[in-house]
Design a protein around this nucleic acid. Structure first.
Lengths: 334, 334
DNA sequence: GGGATAATTTACAGCGCTGTAATCTTCTTG
DNA sequence: CAAGAAGATTACAGCGCTGTAAATTATCCC
């Protein structure tokens, strides 16, 4: 079956192309008579509008790009799901782009976004500088996610990482922990995410009158459970004692948990652990993880709200919004 | 800065649009003189080709859709990552579609694919019937993934689930397990995936001379670690004894692990567990999971090979291919 | 150096659709 | 019942690009 075009339908129905177009798009000013006549032709021919043609004509592609480092990280996977669903509800399709957290990858995202393929882009950078982000073509609406400093001109949605980290630290302190470690940040090139969480950790300790002990701060070769396990294991084997861990994210927490259990330490008996992100597996480890949970729904909704406003033509300084978070208390740090 | 079109570049460089187009696409027959002249104009204007225009003209969108139930499931997230990367290597962008495993969702995928937006689609259905899949418009190349029976006309890549399940079962038997349970299939509307794995489980038991005991077969309310944990917990609390579990997937295995640990049972001492998918966290649970690992790279590469061949115009009966798998032996079932 | 061949470059028609503006109907209302 | 308003329909240009085929220029060989 050759492809059916708008024109074919118009010819069969004996009306103009525009009328068919109006019927297809449910334009209000179409008489019932026309509508049914055209609909009949559409059904008969099995016509499907070609999205590309429409998009060229309207200048809207109906697609959004979602760009972050790596979907295989559970937090991003869950974020991707939430965005796909909500974007779908708003009539957009989602293009997935991964940057691997590299500068090249992030630049590629910006490039792609300029090719007119997508109407807007939701971007969680890891390394790109705020300056460079600000220089992207202004005609492509962009909303940032995450902790990288946002240029004044760009919208951004995040949670207050410093505050949340401080709250989690306070929670550990409250349960009597004194030697609280921090695990999972990068060994070099600290990301903004890690640095804000570290800052909150430090504040939390200081506010509790505890000294920051550098030997308790354990970086990880990569953002993964495996490397966190290795790093924590090495520290433990090196004789460092901990009674609590503020982990940069749930993956680090899972790695930490394993490193402790391998060595016969009890969680939370000997050591308490908090994670970050509240990935769905966080409630299924044993013990389950106490973790910082961003209000993902709010995050997604606000990000898309801001993006749609930009797409509708809003101009103005970047709006920098915070969405709520909560500390979900589970077994690993009651 | 208003958008720059091909025509603007052509005018500035004093050449035809087609020549600019040729330069942009690195067409071989362009003289060096022309190339540099045009390139200069391109740089001066900051021209970026508009992908939509190109695609309308060539009839190729350069996009592929990847459709499955839910990216937030780790296996799919990891699959999505592999596909994005490999598709990117081949010059395609990936559109993510989620079906939630519902018939509606799966139909929507087929619909979208017909709108000419994507050049092809990689689709892992859960419930759609082979007949209905076969009826999709033939002009949209489609490659199936997974265990749903594939129509004769459609390409499909999978691993031999029955054989793999049998192998995993045999592995459990070999370590002396006698009361091996199966966990994680649907309570009603068994998916093809579950049913094939159950079949392999049954074969494995029978071949070892063990009887199939229905009380050891534990369905789960949903494909999730949480529901698997609940289901297994209920069985254990109901007095059913197990010394091994073949789990439908790693999530079920994680849930099972937790259910056992909560009740003070040792893994693998009292009970051995195998999972399926080898998600990245499988090596970081404690104990780590023995699991069936599909050769994802091969899967992705073959799926894209087949799809590209279809896009290039290959017609012919559906090719049904198997890719290798292996049983990764870790702590949960040594 | 002339004719033939190969290499470049160009003009132009679309790809499939929608916006605009113009035209034609139908409906109100004094 | 006619004039004007409102509603429905249409013709057509054009979104930004590339394929085709024709036109032009360069290259080759005896």
């Amino acid at each position: 079956m050759a492809k059916v075009r708008l024109e074919d339908v118009a010819r069969l129905a004996g009306v103009s192309m525009k009328t068919v177009s109006n019927v297809v798009r449910e334009h209000p000013n179409v008489s019932e008579k026309m509508r049914s006549k055209v609909q009949k032709a559409i059904d008969e021919l099995g016509y499907r509008p070609n999205v590309l043609g429409r998009r060229l004509a309207t200048g809207r592609s109906g697609m959004l790009a979602l760009a972050f480092s790596d979907v295989s990280l559970p937090y991003f996977a869950e974020l991707a799901r939430a965005f796909t669903v909500e974007a779908g509800r708003r009539g957009y399709l989602l293009l997935l782009e991964q940057t691997d957290g590299t500068l090249e990858g992030e630049r590629a995202v910006i490039e792609t976004s300029e090719a007119g393929l997508v109407d807007g882009i939701i971007f969680q950078p890891t390394t790109m500088s705020s300056l460079e982000i600000a220089q992207h073509r202004e005609d492509v609406p962009l909303v940032m996610l995450g902790e990288v400093p946002a240029p004044l001109s760009v919208d951004r949605v995040m949670i207050d990482n410093v505050e949340a980290a401080e709250a989690a630290t306070a929670h550990l302190v409250r349960s009597g922990r004194q030697r609280i470690g921090f695990v999972g940040h990068e060994e070099t090139h600290l990301s903004s995410t890690s640095s804000q969480r570290l800052m909150g950790y430090q504040q939390g300790l200081e506010r509790a009158g505890l000294a920051v002990d550098m030997s308790l701060i354990i970086p990880s070769r990569s953002i993964s459970a495996k490397d966190a396990a290795v790093a924590v294991g090495k520290a433990l084997d090196g004789g460092v004692r901990f009674d609590g861990f503020l982990c940069r994210d749930d993956l680090a927490a899972i790695g930490t948990l394993r490193a402790l259990q391998e060595r016969g330490l009890e969680v939370p008996g000997d050591v308490a652990i908090t994670g970050w992100d509240d990935i769905s597996l966080a409630s299924l480890t044993y013990p389950s993880l106490t973790t910082v949970a961003a209000d993902t729904t709010a995050l997604v909704v606000r990000a898309l709200d801001l993006l749609e406003e930009r797409i509708e033509g809003y101009v103005g300084l970047g709006r920098h919004e915070l969405v709520p978070y909560s500390l979900v208390v589970r077994e690993s740090a009651p």
